[in-house]
Computed example of a mutant assay.
Amino acid sequence: MKVLLKNRGQITMEFAILMAAVVAVAAILGFYYLKTVESSSTKAQNENIVSNTVKLNKVVDIVNKVKEAIING
């Protein structure tokens, strides 16, 4: 018991260093997580724009075909 009380300051310092390392690792992982989320969000947005453009082009094609069928009988 005396040994634990004698090294209490050292144990506290080691615990503080361990906690600082945990906080640093959590901050680094959080940064990379947010960076990945932002990248995937931008990619999804671009793919959505392309998809919507393709759909709109198909709709315009169909409308033009119907218009042509009505005009030409």
Score class of each variant (00 low, 15 high):
residue 17 I to K: 14
residue 26 A to I: 12
residue 3 V to K: 03
residue 49 I to Y: 13
residue 45 Q to A: 11
residue 19 M to G: 04
residue 65 K to I: 11
residue 2 K to N: 13
residue 54 V to W: 02
residue 31 F to I: 10
residue 10 Q to L: 03
residue 73 G to D: 15
residue 26 A to G: 11
residue 40 S to G: 08
residue 52 N to D: 01
residue 24 A to S: 10
residue 9 G to R: 02
residue 13 M to H: 05
residue 10 Q to M: 05
residue 31 F to A: 09
residue 25 V to G: 08
residue 34 L to K: 10
residue 18 L to R: 14
residue 63 V to M: 02
residue 51 S to W: 13
residue 42 T to D: 01
residue 44 A to N: 14
residue 21 A to P: 07
residue 42 T to Y: 00
residue 41 S to C: 01
residue 16 A to F: 12
residue 64 N to K: 00
residue 53 T to N: 05
residue 54 V to F: 05
residue 5 L to I: 12
residue 23 V to F: 10
residue 42 T to V: 01
residue 26 A to F: 13
residue 9 G to D: 03
residue 72 N to L: 09
residue 55 K to W: 04
residue 67 K to M: 05
residue 16 A to Q: 15
residue 32 Y to K: 06
residue 73 G to R: 15
residue 64 N to F: 09
residue 49 I to A: 10
residue 5 L to R: 14
residue 8 R to E: 00
residue 50 V to K: 12
residue 20 A to G: 09
residue 67 K to R: 07
residue 64 N to H: 00
residue 29 L to Y: 08
residue 43 K to Y: 07
residue 53 T to V: 06
residue 49 I to V: 15
residue 20 A to S: 11
residue 62 I to A: 09
residue 11 I to T: 05
residue 27 A to I: 15
residue 1 M to A: 15
residue 14 E to D: 11
residue 49 I to Q: 10
residue 52 N to I: 02
residue 36 T to F: 12
residue 44 A to T: 15
residue 4 L to M: 04
residue 23 V to T: 12
residue 64 N to G: 02
residue 72 N to Q: 10
